[in-house]
Design a protein around this nucleic acid. Structure first.
Length: 293
DNA sequence: ATGCCCTCGCCTCGAGGA
């Protein structure tokens, strides 16, 4: 099962490029960020014609996230991150596909530092930490993918010294990300490539892609059992070099089928069809949430 | 320290991105 995340920087102007990449990469699940389109502008017909079902959470001009699933409808489990009722920015959507709970997030950029936008970023991050903890308690396969707007370590940026006071690299933000990892989440790309310099984003400015002046800010985080199933994690770097590209490249993982006879309901999931699996996981999520109040 | 380049809106410039 191939799961990808791709900040498209505008679904309107990027549709052709997205379709080209879908055709080439053929991922099972895709998390899109920065749709920059309200719900009615989501290009569902074109995406369906490419063989994908979709759920989305749009917003005029800014933000916006969507989950695509090849050959099926993603089973929507959540729109919006809990914890701040007055937050109207469309930055989180979640769905179950083939027995995996996929959370797609677009964490706030937070610049300039210091200021209210940075404060909002930290608040949003705290909400994510709290919610991610709830997800781990469900003990189901979970992938939290998206544009985290976090450069995790000095290795993940071309010139760390220039980024010290940037909201993507501030200590508070890196610590918040590290806390997620300490809670049990696995950074898939880093887990399989511990010593490589890997970027997922290159500025449009100053020929950044050609100079490889990039950042690693798009991440796929896996719960412990899904981390055991991880077999591949890559960046489709070449897509950043295509005509009319987004400033981000797609990032993807491959996880092997859930093992049989390991308890936790995996065995049941594997034997049933995709929709049954999805509904089964969905039921368990609802039950756990009900129990938790 | 700032702009670079690009997207969107309803518009030809400003805001936001990272």
């Amino acid at each position: 099962m191939k799961i990808a995340t791709f900040n498209v920087n505008g679904i309107g102007g990027r549709l052709d490029l997205l379709l080209r990449w879908l055709e080439e990469a053929s991922p099972n699940v895709v998390c899109l960020q920065e749709l920059k389109a309200q719900d009615t502008r989501f290009p569902l017909l074109a995406i369906e014609a490419a063989g994908y079902g979709a759920v989305w959470h749009g917003q005029k001009s800014w933000n916006g996230v969507a989950i695509l699933a090849k050959g099926q409808e993603p089973l929507l489990t959540r729109r919006g991150l809990p914890g701040e009722a007055e937050d109207s920015q469309s930055r989180y959507i979640e769905a179950v596909v083939d027995g995996v709970l996929v959370g797609n997030l677009y964490l706030p950029n937070g610049n300039p530092y210091p200021g209210p936008k940075f404060d909002y970023k930290l608040r949003w991050f705290k909400r994510l930490q709290d919610y991610a903890e709830e997800l781990l308690e469900l003990e189901i396969p979970v992938v939290l993918a998206g544009d985290y707007n976090v450069v995790p370590t000095e290795r993940d940026v071309y010139k760390p010294e220039r980024w010290k006071n940037d909201a993507l690299f501030r200590t508070e933000v890196r610590k918040a990300y590290e806390l997620l990892l300490n809670e049990g989440w696995t950074d898939a790309l880093r887990a399989l490539h511990p010593n490589e310099t890997i970027y997922t984003f290159w500025h449009y400015f100053r020929d950044a892609y050609a100079r490889n002046a990039g950042l690693r800010i798009d991440h796929l985080l896996l719960d412990p059992t899904t981390a055991e199933r991880l077999v591949k994690a890559e960046v489709d770097r070449h897509v950043r070099g295509w005509e009319h590209a987004s400033d981000h490249a797609p990032v993807w993982i491959e996880i092997e089928d859930a093992p049989l006879n390991k308890g936790s309901g995996y065995d049941r999931s594997v034997k049933s069809g995709p929709q049954t699996q999805a509904r089964g996981v969905d039921r368990r999520i609802r039950r756990k949430r009900d129990e938790a109040g």
